[in-house]
C-alpha cells in the first residue's frame, strides 16, 4: 500500500485554492491536511515534521511571503517537498525559490505542464522548473530584453529609493545607476522613472514586498 503524503495548500484566493484542491483530489497518494491563506502558518504546520508536501503561493495573506516561508520550511524540515505556485511574472521569484531550496516551481495558468504532473514528478524526487519567467511587455520592450542589473535597479526604484540610495544598496556608483536608468528608459520608451515603475509594478514584473 502506498504511503499517504500529508499535504498543505497555501493559497489566499478561494477559487484558486479550490481549483488546486480539486486537482490534487485526482492523486490517490495525496491527502490534504490543511488549506491556508497565510504562508507563515505553514511554517508552524510543518513544525512536527509530519508534512510531506507543501504547495505554496508567493503572495499570501497579510503580505506574508511564500518564498520566505518556503525557505524556512526547507531549512527546518528538509525532507518536506515544497512546490512554489505563482501567476506573477516577477523576475526574481525563480531565483529566490531556487535559493530557498524549493523542489519545484509552477506558473499557474501560464505553464504547459499541469499541476498534477508537477506534483507527481516532485513526489518522485524530480525537480520541475520552468526555464525562465514569463515574458511580458514593459512599454516598448519585452522583459527578456532587460539585463539582470537593469532589473536590480528597477527593483530598487520600485522600493522608492533615490539614486544615491540605490548606488549604496547595489554597491555601484551614482553615474552607473543613472546609466542603467537611462538605458531602461531608452529601451522601454517611458519618459520618466515614475511611469516605468508604475507599469512594472502593474504588470507584476517587480514586487518589492516579496
Amino acid at each position: 500500500m502506498t504511503a499517504m503524503v500529508r499535504t498543505i495548500v497555501v493559497e489566499d484566493s478561494l477559487l484558486a485554492r479550490e481549483a488546486v484542491v480539486d486537482r490534487l483530489a485526482q492523486l490517490p497518494n495525496v491527502t490534504i491536511v490543511a488549506t491556508l491563506e497565510n504562508a507563515a502558518n505553514a511554517v508552524v504546520a510543518c513544525a512536527r515534521r509530519s508534512i510531506g508536501l507543501v504547495l505554496m503561493d508567493v503572495c499570501t495573506r497579510d503580505d506574508e511571503s511564500g518564498l520566505a516561508a518556503a525557505a524556512r520550511i526547507k531549512r527546518e524540515s528538509p525532507s518536506t517537498r515544497v512546490i512554489i505556485m505563482t501567476s506573477m511574472p516577477e523576475h526574481t521569484f525563480l531565483a529566490k525559490a531556487q535559493a530557498a531550496g524549493c523542489d519545484s516551481f509552477w506558473y499557474k495558468d501560464l505553464q504547459a505542464v499541469g499541476l498534477v504532473d508537477v506534483v507527481e514528478r516532485t513526489l518522485r524526487g524530480e525537480r520541475v522548473w520552468p526555464s525562465e519567467a514569463p515574458v511580458v511587455w514593459l512599454g516598448l520592450a519585452r522583459s527578456s530584453e532587460l539585463t539582470a542589473r537593469e532589473f536590480d535597479v528597477l527593483h530598487q526604484l520600485a522600493r522608492g529609493l533615490s539614486y544615491e540610495q540605490i548606488a549604496s544598496e547595489l554597491g555601484i556608483s551614482l553615474n552607473t545607476v543613472k546609466y542603467h536608468v537611462k538605458n531602461l528608459l531608452a529601451k522601454t520608451g517611458f519618459e520618466s522613472t515614475l511611469a516605468l515603475v508604475v507599469e512594472a509594478v502593474d504588470k507584476r514584473l517587480v514586487l518589492p514586498k516579496y
Binding site: 522608492g160 529609493l161 533615490s162 539614486y163 520618466s192 522613472t193 515614475l194 515603475v197 509594478v201
Partner: peptide, 19 residues
C-alpha cells in the same frame, strides 16, 4: 526627485488595492 519619490511611494501603497 523628492516629489517623484513621494508620488512613487503613494502609488506603491495603492498596489495592494489594485491587486
Amino acid at each position: 526627485l523628492r516629489e517623484q519619490n513621494a508620488r512613487q511611494q503613494l502609488l506603491l501603497q495603492d498596489v495592494e488595492k489594485i491587486n
